[in-house]
Every structure is written in C-alpha cells, then in structure tokens.
C-alpha cells in the first residue's frame, strides 16, 4: 500500500460531476465491511467490495459526506440456476461523515482484488506536531 501505487487511481468525483446514486438504488444495497484507521498524515478506509471493478466503483464527496458505492458484476454462464447464495445483491453502498481536517481535493482511492482503499489526507495544518514538555 505504498504512495507510489496511487498513480493510476480512480478519479474521485467532486460535488459538481457527481452521479445521483439514490436513483440507481432499486433494491437494498449491501453494506461493505470496512476497516478505518488513522495515520499521521491521513485516515485510511479499507472496504471489502468483491465483484466491483474499477469502472463499477463510484466515490463521491458531497460537503462532509463520503459516499462509496459499487456495482457487483460476476460473470455467470447462460442458464445458471443459483442453488445457494451468501452474497445477494447487485450493489454496495456506504456513507461516512468526514471531519474538517480532511483535504477533500486530495482524496484518492485504489481497487485491488475487490478490496477498496480510500486515502483521506489531512490538511497540512492538522498534521501532528511533537509537543515538547518543559521542565520548571
């Protein structure tokens, strides 16, 4: 998960060019499980979205809202009848509220083997500083 890998990242749509996700939701979407952790210069969100390709992924930032959604596409042969299913659905959908310290212009995302990583960089002014404790 190096910074260098982020070069061919999925473009993150900002408010102006966003698709309206609400209208595409005909059934109840799946909630992708996610890990969220804090690093010195960014917050990282890692979510499981198997079956979602880079093209089927949609990440939007609207104000303080981060929306992650993706269409599940699995190649199925003609005439397949399902006999057992643990994954039922055609879309993942999840929202998070961002803090003010996140630099929305620099959000990047990467899809690798159905695992989505979103990097939410912190603004320069919010990076940690070492506080020196003075002795009396």
């Amino acid at each position: 998960m190096s910074q260098g890998k982020n070069t061919d990242d999925q473009q993150v749509a900002t408010q102006g060019q966003s698709r309206n996700v609400a209208t595409q939701r005909s059934e109840r979407p799946l909630l992708p499980p996610a890990d969220i952790y804090e690093e010195a210069d960014a917050i990282r969100v890692v979510a499981d979205m198997p079956g979602v390709s880079k093209d089927g992924l949609n990440i939007e930032v609207d104000g303080t809202e981060l929306t992650i959604s993706g269409d599940i596409r699995v190649d199925t042969p003609e005439g397949l009848t399902a006999s057992y299913a643990e994954i039922r659905g055609s879309q993942y959908y999840r929202q998070f509220i961002l803090g003010r310290e996140i630099d929305k212009e620099r959000i990047s995302a990467e899809m690798d083997n159905g695992e989505l990583t979103v990097v939410l960089p912190k603004k320069e002014s919010h990076r940690p500083r070492q506080i020196e404790v003075k002795t009396a």
Binding site: P77, G79, L80, T81, A82
Partner: peptide
C-alpha cells in the same frame, strides 16, 4: 462467502 449455482453441464 460463497455462492453456488449449476447449469446443465457444470457446477459453479
């Protein structure tokens, strides 16, 4: 997680 299905010729 796993899904199972079948066609006339194969199990998927």
């Amino acid at each position: 997680m796993v899904n199972l299905g079948a066609t006339d010729d194969a199990v998927y």
